[in-house]
Protein backbone atom coordinates (compact mmCIF):
# COMPACT_ATOMS: atom_id res chain seq x y z
CA UNK A 1 0.00 0.00 0.00
CA UNK A 2 2.85 2.40 0.77
CA UNK A 3 3.83 2.59 -2.91
CA UNK A 4 0.45 4.01 -3.80
CA UNK A 5 -0.05 7.71 -3.67
CA UNK A 6 -1.69 9.27 -0.65
CA UNK A 7 -4.78 11.18 -1.76
CA UNK A 8 -6.52 12.33 1.37
CA UNK A 9 -4.80 12.78 4.68
CA UNK A 10 -6.61 13.46 7.92
CA UNK A 11 -3.98 14.66 10.31
CA UNK A 12 -4.53 14.59 14.07
CA UNK A 13 -7.87 16.31 14.04
CA UNK A 14 -10.03 17.10 17.01
CA UNK A 15 -13.65 17.97 16.46
CA UNK A 16 -15.97 19.19 19.17
CA UNK A 17 -19.58 20.25 19.23
CA UNK A 18 -19.71 22.67 22.11
CA UNK A 19 -18.08 20.66 24.90
CA UNK A 20 -18.56 17.21 23.40
CA UNK A 21 -15.55 15.82 21.59
CA UNK A 22 -16.73 13.92 18.53
CA UNK A 23 -13.27 13.07 17.27
CA UNK A 24 -10.14 13.13 19.39
CA UNK A 25 -6.74 13.33 17.73
CA UNK A 26 -7.98 11.31 14.74
CA UNK A 27 -5.73 10.49 11.79
CA UNK A 28 -6.40 8.62 8.57
CA UNK A 29 -4.74 8.38 5.19
CA UNK A 30 -6.56 7.28 2.08
CA UNK A 31 -4.45 5.91 -0.75
CA UNK A 32 -5.15 5.75 -4.44
CA UNK A 33 -7.45 2.90 -5.46
CA UNK A 34 -8.19 1.96 -1.89
CA UNK A 35 -11.60 1.22 -0.40
CA UNK A 36 -11.69 2.24 3.25
CA UNK A 37 -14.76 1.27 5.22
CA UNK A 38 -15.51 2.95 8.51
CA UNK A 39 -17.79 1.09 10.89
CA UNK A 40 -18.77 1.65 14.47
CA UNK A 41 -21.68 2.29 16.79
CA UNK A 42 -24.07 5.20 16.20
CA UNK A 43 -22.74 8.57 17.23
CA UNK A 44 -19.09 7.49 17.17
CA UNK A 45 -18.18 10.20 14.66
CA UNK A 46 -18.12 8.19 11.42
CA UNK A 47 -20.18 10.60 9.37
CA UNK A 48 -18.34 13.54 10.84
CA UNK A 49 -15.09 12.23 9.34
CA UNK A 50 -16.58 12.26 5.85
CA UNK A 51 -18.05 15.71 6.34
CA UNK A 52 -14.67 16.99 7.49
CA UNK A 53 -12.98 15.43 4.44
CA UNK A 54 -15.41 17.41 2.29
CA UNK A 55 -14.81 20.66 4.15
CA UNK A 56 -18.38 20.74 5.46
CA UNK A 57 -17.31 20.80 9.12
CA UNK A 58 -14.72 23.04 10.71
CA UNK A 59 -12.30 21.34 13.11
CA UNK A 60 -10.74 22.64 16.29
CA UNK A 61 -7.33 21.01 15.86
CA UNK A 62 -5.34 19.35 13.10
CA UNK A 63 -5.94 19.52 9.38
CA UNK A 64 -7.18 17.62 6.37
CA UNK A 65 -5.30 17.72 3.10
CA UNK A 66 -6.21 16.58 -0.38
CA UNK A 67 -3.04 15.87 -2.37
CA UNK A 68 -1.16 18.14 -0.02
CA UNK A 69 -3.65 20.97 -0.29
CA UNK A 70 -5.51 22.12 2.80
CA UNK A 71 -9.21 21.24 2.89
CA UNK A 72 -11.02 24.10 4.57
CA UNK A 73 -14.60 25.16 3.93
CA UNK A 74 -13.65 28.80 4.35
CA UNK A 75 -10.94 28.84 1.67
CA UNK A 76 -11.65 29.68 -1.94
CA UNK A 77 -9.84 26.53 -3.04
CA UNK A 78 -12.55 24.37 -1.46
CA UNK A 79 -14.79 24.29 -4.53
CA UNK A 80 -11.92 22.99 -6.66
CA UNK A 81 -11.18 20.31 -4.07
CA UNK A 82 -14.83 19.33 -3.80
CA UNK A 83 -14.91 18.70 -7.53
CA UNK A 84 -12.37 15.99 -6.85
CA UNK A 85 -13.85 14.68 -3.61
CA UNK A 86 -17.40 13.54 -4.33
CA UNK A 87 -19.92 12.89 -1.61
CA UNK A 88 -23.12 10.87 -1.43
CA UNK A 89 -25.50 11.51 1.46
CA UNK A 90 -27.74 9.21 3.46
CA UNK A 91 -30.80 11.23 2.47
CA UNK A 92 -29.82 11.41 -1.26
CA UNK A 93 -30.23 15.18 -1.40
CA UNK A 94 -31.15 15.33 -5.05
CA UNK A 95 -32.38 18.76 -6.05
CA UNK A 96 -36.18 18.40 -6.00
CA UNK A 97 -36.80 21.22 -8.49
CA UNK A 98 -34.66 19.67 -11.19
CA UNK A 99 -35.16 16.60 -13.34
CA UNK A 100 -32.88 13.61 -12.94
CA UNK A 101 -30.82 14.63 -15.97
CA UNK A 102 -30.62 18.23 -14.75
CA UNK A 103 -29.49 17.00 -11.35
CA UNK A 104 -26.64 15.08 -12.92
CA UNK A 105 -25.66 17.78 -15.41
CA UNK A 106 -25.82 20.83 -13.14
CA UNK A 107 -22.39 20.79 -11.55
CA UNK A 108 -20.32 19.59 -14.53
CA UNK A 109 -21.78 22.37 -16.67
CA UNK A 110 -21.98 25.11 -14.03
CA UNK A 111 -18.84 24.40 -12.02
CA UNK A 112 -16.53 22.67 -14.46
CA UNK A 113 -17.78 24.67 -17.46
CA UNK A 114 -17.81 21.55 -19.57
CA UNK A 115 -19.57 21.31 -22.88
CA UNK A 116 -23.29 20.71 -22.39
CA UNK A 117 -23.57 18.13 -25.14
CA UNK A 118 -20.64 16.12 -23.92
CA UNK A 119 -21.91 16.21 -20.33
CA UNK A 120 -25.37 15.12 -21.42
CA UNK A 121 -23.94 12.18 -23.30
CA UNK A 122 -21.92 11.10 -20.30
CA UNK A 123 -24.83 11.63 -17.92
CA UNK A 124 -27.11 9.44 -20.04
CA UNK A 125 -24.44 6.79 -20.26
CA UNK A 126 -23.96 6.77 -16.48
CA UNK A 127 -27.72 6.71 -15.90
CA UNK A 128 -28.14 3.74 -18.18
CA UNK A 129 -25.30 2.02 -16.36
CA UNK A 130 -27.35 2.16 -13.15
CA UNK A 131 -30.48 1.23 -15.08
CA UNK A 132 -32.20 4.61 -14.85
CA UNK A 133 -31.90 6.19 -18.29
CA UNK A 134 -35.66 6.06 -18.82
CA UNK A 135 -36.10 8.21 -15.70
CA UNK A 136 -34.00 11.07 -17.04
CA UNK A 137 -36.92 13.50 -17.40
CA UNK A 138 -38.62 12.55 -14.15
CA UNK A 139 -38.39 14.54 -10.97
CA UNK A 140 -36.85 13.12 -7.80
CA UNK A 141 -40.27 12.88 -6.12
CA UNK A 142 -41.25 10.30 -8.74
CA UNK A 143 -38.41 7.93 -7.87
CA UNK A 144 -38.02 5.33 -5.13
CA UNK A 145 -35.35 5.75 -2.47
CA UNK A 146 -33.04 3.25 -4.12
CA UNK A 147 -33.42 4.95 -7.48
CA UNK A 148 -32.74 8.34 -5.97
CA UNK A 149 -29.61 7.07 -4.32
CA UNK A 150 -28.35 5.61 -7.59
CA UNK A 151 -28.93 8.97 -9.24
CA UNK A 152 -27.01 10.65 -6.41
CA UNK A 153 -24.08 8.34 -7.10
CA UNK A 154 -24.24 9.09 -10.81
CA UNK A 155 -24.39 12.79 -10.04
CA UNK A 156 -21.19 12.52 -8.01
CA UNK A 157 -19.52 10.34 -10.68
CA UNK A 158 -20.26 12.77 -13.47
CA UNK A 159 -17.83 15.22 -11.86
CA UNK A 160 -15.00 12.71 -12.38
CA UNK A 161 -14.02 12.74 -8.72
CA UNK A 162 -10.84 11.12 -7.55
CA UNK A 163 -12.32 10.02 -4.25
CA UNK A 164 -15.91 9.20 -3.37
CA UNK A 165 -17.27 9.53 0.13
CA UNK A 166 -20.36 7.47 0.95
CA UNK A 167 -22.19 8.47 4.10
CA UNK A 168 -24.50 5.63 5.18
CA UNK A 169 -26.03 5.64 1.75
CA UNK A 170 -28.38 2.73 2.40
CA UNK A 171 -29.46 3.61 5.93
CA UNK A 172 -32.67 5.29 4.78
CA UNK A 173 -33.65 2.57 2.31
CA UNK A 174 -36.09 -0.28 2.49
CA UNK A 175 -34.23 -3.58 2.75
CA UNK A 176 -35.02 -4.70 -0.79
CA UNK A 177 -33.59 -1.49 -2.22
CA UNK A 178 -30.31 -1.74 -0.38
CA UNK A 179 -28.87 -4.23 -2.81
CA UNK A 180 -29.45 -2.22 -5.98
CA UNK A 181 -27.44 0.63 -4.49
CA UNK A 182 -24.68 -1.49 -3.06
CA UNK A 183 -24.26 -3.29 -6.40
CA UNK A 184 -23.41 0.05 -7.98
CA UNK A 185 -20.81 0.78 -5.34
CA UNK A 186 -19.34 -2.72 -5.70
CA UNK A 187 -18.95 -2.21 -9.43
CA UNK A 188 -17.11 1.04 -8.77
CA UNK A 189 -14.76 -0.78 -6.43
CA UNK A 190 -14.01 -3.30 -9.18
CA UNK A 191 -12.96 -0.40 -11.40
CA UNK A 192 -10.46 0.65 -8.79
CA UNK A 193 -12.21 3.81 -7.59
CA UNK A 194 -10.89 5.28 -4.38
CA UNK A 195 -13.66 5.33 -1.81
CA UNK A 196 -14.33 5.98 1.83
CA UNK A 197 -17.51 4.30 2.96
CA UNK A 198 -19.41 4.67 6.20
CA UNK A 199 -21.95 1.88 6.53
CA UNK A 200 -23.97 -0.35 8.81
CA UNK A 201 -24.14 -3.12 6.21
CA UNK A 202 -21.57 -5.52 7.59
CA UNK A 203 -21.74 -8.12 4.83
CA UNK A 204 -21.24 -5.36 2.27
CA UNK A 205 -18.39 -3.88 4.28
CA UNK A 206 -16.67 -7.23 4.40
CA UNK A 207 -17.08 -7.73 0.66
CA UNK A 208 -15.84 -4.36 -0.45
CA UNK A 209 -13.27 -3.16 2.08
CA UNK A 210 -9.53 -3.18 1.54
CA UNK A 211 -9.21 -1.72 4.98
CA UNK A 212 -11.73 -1.56 7.80
CA UNK A 213 -11.60 1.07 10.48
CA UNK A 214 -13.57 0.43 13.61
CA UNK A 215 -14.36 3.68 15.30
CA UNK A 216 -15.55 3.96 18.86
CA UNK A 217 -16.14 7.16 20.80
CA UNK A 218 -14.13 9.32 18.43
CA UNK A 219 -10.98 7.24 18.08
CA UNK A 220 -9.81 4.23 16.08
CA UNK A 221 -10.36 1.19 18.23
CA UNK A 222 -9.21 -1.29 15.65
CA UNK A 223 -7.97 -1.27 12.07
CA UNK A 224 -7.20 -4.05 9.63
CA UNK A 225 -8.14 -5.85 6.44
CA UNK A 226 -11.74 -6.99 6.03
CA UNK A 227 -10.66 -10.56 6.77
CA UNK A 228 -8.79 -9.56 9.94
CA UNK A 229 -11.52 -7.37 11.31
CA UNK A 230 -14.59 -9.46 10.55
CA UNK A 231 -13.10 -12.95 11.10
CA UNK A 232 -10.55 -12.28 13.81
CA UNK A 233 -11.38 -9.11 15.67
CA UNK A 234 -8.81 -8.39 18.34
CA UNK A 235 -10.40 -5.89 20.73
CA UNK A 236 -13.24 -6.74 23.07
CA UNK A 237 -15.12 -3.68 21.87
CA UNK A 238 -14.97 -4.85 18.25
CA UNK A 239 -16.12 -8.35 19.15
CA UNK A 240 -19.00 -6.92 21.09
CA UNK A 241 -19.92 -4.65 18.19
CA UNK A 242 -19.85 -7.46 15.63
CA UNK A 243 -21.88 -9.68 17.93
CA UNK A 244 -24.62 -7.08 18.03
CA UNK A 245 -25.44 -8.01 14.43
CA UNK A 246 -26.20 -11.65 15.21
CA UNK A 247 -29.02 -13.10 17.24
CA UNK A 248 -29.12 -16.23 19.35
CA UNK A 249 -31.73 -18.76 18.48
CA UNK A 250 -34.60 -18.53 20.91
CA UNK A 251 -35.29 -21.79 22.68
CA UNK A 252 -38.89 -22.13 23.75
CA UNK A 253 -39.34 -23.79 27.09
Amino acid sequence: MSKKEEIVRVDHITKRYEENAILEDFSLSVYEGEVVVIVGPSGCGKSTILRIMNGLEPVQKGEVTYRGEKVDGKLGSITRIREKVGMVFQSYELFPHKTILQNVMLAPVLVQKRDKKEVKEEALQLLSRVGLSEKKDNYPRQLSGGQKQRVAIVRALCMHPEVLLFDEVTAALDPEMVREVLEVILSLAKEGKTMVIVTHEMAFAEAIADRVIFLDAGHIEEEGTAEEFFRHPKSERAKQFLNSFTYDKVVHE
Binding site: L56, T79, R80, G86, M87, S91, F95, L110, Q112
Partner: peptide, 11 residues
Protein backbone atom coordinates in the same frame (compact mmCIF):
# COMPACT_ATOMS: atom_id res chain seq x y z
CA UNK B 1 -28.31 19.75 3.80
CA UNK B 2 -29.47 20.83 0.32
CA UNK B 3 -26.87 23.57 0.55
CA UNK B 4 -24.28 21.05 1.63
CA UNK B 5 -25.24 18.75 -1.19
CA UNK B 6 -24.77 21.56 -3.69
CA UNK B 7 -21.49 22.64 -2.15
CA UNK B 8 -20.19 19.07 -2.11
CA UNK B 9 -20.56 19.18 -5.89
CA UNK B 10 -18.25 22.17 -6.04
CA UNK B 11 -20.86 24.91 -6.31
Amino acid sequence: IQTESAMSLGL
